[in-house]
């Protein structure tokens, strides 16, 4: 089962990646071979298996603000574009 070019293009769009023609071709083959390998999961009888309560349960933090020991300037130093203490982004629409 090979993924169609359209399927790969749609997925790449969803995860915000641009693929070259060569990558589309290669990934669709490689992903198909991985998918055919994992296909066998369907053979396992999972009747009666619940997904709730068997894993470690979530531990929720209190909805309370706490002071952050890192300054705003420090946190922003890794941002590619900033202005007046804000992260600057391109316009959403052209």
């Amino acid at each position: 089962m090979k993924l169609s070019k359209e399927q790969i293009e749609k997925l790449a769009g969803l995860v915000r990646l641009e693929l070259s023609e060569e990558e589309k071709e290669r990934f669709s083959g490689e992903i198909a071979s991985i998918l055919s390998y994992v296909e066998k999961l369907g053979e396992v009888d999972v009747k009666g298996i619940e997904l709730d309560g068997v894993e470690i349960s979530n531990i929720y933090g209190k909805d309370k603000s706490e002071p952050c020991e890192i300054s705003q300037a420090e946190l922003l130093k890794n941002a590619p574009m900033t202005e007046d203490g804000f992260i600057k982004v391109k316009s959403v629409l052209e």
Binding site: E18, F27, V38
Partner: peptide, 30 residues
């Protein structure tokens, strides 16, 4: 770069290597 979407897509496309891209796409599919 035309818009915000371009920043996302082009940064990720140039920033990630092949194995990361392959797994991201596979994961999105599954």
């Amino acid at each position: 770069i035309k818009n915000l979407l371009d920043v996302y897509s082009k940064s990720r496309t140039k920033g990630f290597g092949a194995e990361a891209k392959r797994r991201i796409i596979l994961g999105a599919y599954a």
